[in-house]
Amino acid sequence: AEDTGVRVELAEEDNGRKSSIALRLWVEDPKKLKVKPKDNGAIEFTFDLEKETPEDVAQEMVESGFFHESDVKIVGKSIRDRVALIQWRRERICPG
């Protein structure tokens, strides 16, 4: 995946059964963002693979004050890349 400066990882082991997964996101390289975030902490949240889109979560992070609106796309893309990898891994382990 492209290095967006925003890192997203699983916050818990993925057993492949739950549609809702815990993810952790943090800024690895603030220079890649248009506006430097105020808080440099790791943000933990749950994401439903079946019902939600990464862009919705990114928008909620903007509305909650974690990121500036101009960075919503880069945050959404970072989450999308990680989610795609998790889904690809699930397909490999348990196709269908």
Partner: peptide
């Protein structure tokens, strides 16, 4: 370590905790 919890109006819970130094990319 300080942990902050932010609940978005949509109901999602964001839990913020410090990133360990080892996880930060070298600048």
């Amino acid at each position: 370590s300080v942990v902050t919890q932010v609940v978005h109006s949509a109901g999602r819970r964001f839990i913020v905790s410090p990133v360990p130094e080892s996880r930060l990319k070298e600048q």
